[in-house]
């Protein structure tokens, strides 16, 4: 962040005013001014420190304590929580399921989101504004409401099954809800707007004359899309994918409503450990493993793209 105050200009006026010792006076004034700033910052810093940083560090500390009793009588410092996590097949398969479903929802939102972003980039600013409003507004409606909408559509006697049975495509209702498919639908629906906005931002920055030049040189629209637009929008694709992936990895409400017990993704497992089984230290370890897996995947994904042949796109 650039300092927004124009100090040079201020110093000149100081010097004009007090011709005696301009240098020292300015220094004192500068220091006083950041002390005033610090005073304004103290309430929020203390608040965020006390109710965010400290609790986060506290559960990190707790995750290294293992205990079998709820009262913690046999509590000892150990790595037992993490060892259990990475050796028990239940937790391992839950981790894999979480990553798999998140990848699917990234894929679905990429496929559905790119055409929207492309259309936004090719439209007039007015249309662009309307589309932005349409796709961003659902983000401001509670996720439970959006999931309930999917209930209406996906239940065995819901809209989609009724429709498919009426036209005679299927005999028995499909299991759309309480399945992995249901969770992928719910997550991709919830986070698709982020994907669209990320891709659209990078598409806006493409110089339109590049495509014109391609057309003049005889490239077909398809070819100019594949060789100009798509590679140049890659940073947007990557940041959209990263965003949707990390949001999907840690979503709790959608997996528990649209998947239920059939789809034990990590957040659902963690919630059970904490709120149902009251295994706080183990739940803390699980939380940090979820955070770690998400951060590592994002790191390697971004690195892989930066190292690929599209490196120049990333500056």
């Amino acid at each position: 962040m650039e300092p927004l105050r124009n100090y040079a200009d201020q110093e000149v006026s100081e010097q004009v005013k007090v011709t005696g010792e301009p240098q020292r006076k300015t220094k004192v004034r500068k220091r006083r001014s950041w002390i005033a700033g610090l005073l304004l910052l103290i309430p929020i810093l203390l608040f965020v420190f006390g109710f965010f940083i400290v609790p986060m560090l506290y559960i990190l500390y707790l995750s290294f304590i293992s205990t079998d009793n709820l009262n913690g009588a046999d509590a000892v410092y150990s790595l037992q929580n993490y060892i259990t996590l990475f050796t028990d097949s239940y937790y391992l398969s839950s981790m894999w399921l979480t990553v798999k479903i998140s990848l699917y929802s990234v894929l679905v939102s990429l496929i559905l989101g790119y055409p929207i972003a492309l259309t936004m980039a090719k439209s007039s600013p007015k249309i662009r504004g309307y589309i932005t409003l349409l796709i961003a507004s659902p983000l401001l409606v509670s996720i439970v409401v959006r999931n309930f909408g999917w209930y209406l559509l996906l239940l065995p006697n819901g809209t989609i099954n009724q429709f498919l049975m009426n036209i005679g495509l299927i005999k028995k209702p499909l299991n759309l809800l309480f399945s992995e498919l249901g969770v992928v639908i719910g997550l991709s629906n919830a986070y698709l707007p982020f994907m669209v906005l990320a891709i659209a931002t990078s598409l806006y920055n493409i110089d339109p004359s590049l495509e014109k030049a391609g057309a003049i040189l005889g490239a077909s629209p398809m070819r100019s899309f594949l060789t100009i637009t798509l590679p140049l929008s890659l940073p947007g694709i990557v940041s959209g994918c990263v965003l949707v992936f990390s949001l999907s990895m840690s979503a709790y409400v959608t997996p528990s409503l649209m998947g239920g017990a059939n789809v034990p993704m990590m957040p659902v497992v963690i919630y059970d450990q904490i709120n149902t089984l009251l295994k706080w230290t183990f739940g803390s370890a699980l939380s940090y493993v979820l955070l770690g897996i998400t951060l590592l995947s994002v790191f390697f994904f971004t690195r892989a793209f930066e190292k690929s042949k599209f490196r120049e796109v990333f500056r």
Partner: peptide
């Protein structure tokens, strides 16, 4: 720059983990 990162950090931690941390704390 760090101050801004700290103040916006609650956004990048999953809400599930934040909820758990606050409950335990």
């Amino acid at each position: 720059h760090y101050v801004t990162s700290i103040l916006t950090a609650p956004l990048s931690v999953p809400q599930l983990v934040l909820g758990i941390a606050l409950l335990i704390y």
